[in-house]
Design a protein around this nucleic acid. Structure first.
Lengths: 188, 188
DNA sequence: TGGTATAATGTTATATTATAACATATTCAA
DNA sequence: TTGAATATGTTATAATATAACATTATACCA
């Protein structure tokens, strides 16, 4: 595959490519968990059991997961989810109630380790873990579900300009793009 | 129209300013309703009673409204909402069930007359009514709640580039910016 | 004009996502 | 070791949204 030389190469602007289908995901997950430990230690916050479990669940793949799906996995022993019905009856036999998950997610989001996807009501591990809570943009493949976190300076610039031009002061942003990822797109 | 202003002046790109606090809103609403009639006639779709009522409710202000708030207003006679409790018991005395509202909203969104704000679970009248369903960006003031629809070519360009650069094909986009609007911002 | 297909609405029930409020337990540090 | 702060347990419920099937209205056309 000969590449066009210097001329037309886009600058090194597309760094964290879309996660490939066959990549070593165990490593993604392990890295994320390790990084999270470090972040929490550094910040003096505590990555407790539940929080770690929730984080691990979120990192099972690059597909966002719902809070109740996380709950089901927690309550089924961490392996594969048993059923969606283990909802209210967390009492004796079961384990956790929804609150446990939501609280863990809140903590993880507050520490920049997880993001929420408003368009899906689902959660995903932060690809820039280790940084403070930050604005993020997401590319969501509607075929495979895999979601990549985007960090485009150009996009942020455009966004800031478009907005401040109108006298608006940004607090928070939510950018979620749906479509087809490079690996699901039919090859030419 | 297309002008290459010589100097550094930002082009005249901020057309539909943030709705002003004291503007003639009755007119916004009336216009929107009229436009909606026209759009539906043109498309051969029907702007029925409920749909019109829902649209009118959405256009009561520039602040997004929740589905159940719309429902409450419908069920209280179109005036001010009576209570949030008129939920399930739409049977005899009441009027509409949630489905009615959601169906109307679905129709209105399908016809490009209303948008949904995922970050608020709320709905707002489309400022570009008359156009086909379209991608939109929103500025949401966290103080007054007023939300403006943004249409920035530059932003769209940046967004498309950042995304296609990564081999992604866009289907849908969701851009919601939270912050302080020009009218709520403390003057210098 | 009447019949019929389509579209719209009614109605009931329930799914899904998220939070409130208060009780108990754990941790850390003085 | 005690007490404040933090974390979790527990119960209940809020808020948002959809499924499924029955009924009614509308439009079209033979």
């Amino acid at each position: 595959m000969a590449q066009r030389a210097a001329s037309k190469r886009p600058l090194v602007t597309a760094p964290p490519a879309f996660p490939k289908p066959g990549h070593n995901h165990a490593r993604c997950a392990a890295d994320a968990l390790a990084k999270a430990e470090a972040v929490c230690t550094a910040r003096g916050t505590r990555l407790t059991d539940i929080r770690r479990q929730v984080l691990a669940t979120v990192w099972q793949s690059h597909v966002p997961v719902g809070a109740y799906e996380i709950l089901a996995q927690l309550n089924s022993g961490g392996g594969t989810p048993r059923s969606h019905k283990s909802r209210a009856l967390t009492a004796r036999g079961g384990r956790h109630a929804p609150m446990a998950v939501y609280r863990a997610l809140e903590f993880l989001m507050g520490n920049g380790l997880v993001h929420r996807l408003a368009s899906l009501n689902a959660y995903i591990g932060c690809a820039h873990r280790g940084e403070d809570p930050h604005a993020a943009q997401f590319l969501i493949c509607r075929r495979c579900g895999i979601t990549a976190e985007l960090k485009s300076a150009a996009l942020n610039r455009a966004l800031n300009q478009a907005v401040t031009e109108r006298g608006f002061t940004i607090d928070s942003q939510l950018v979620e793009i749906g479509g087809i990822c490079p690996h699901c797109r039919p090859k030419p």
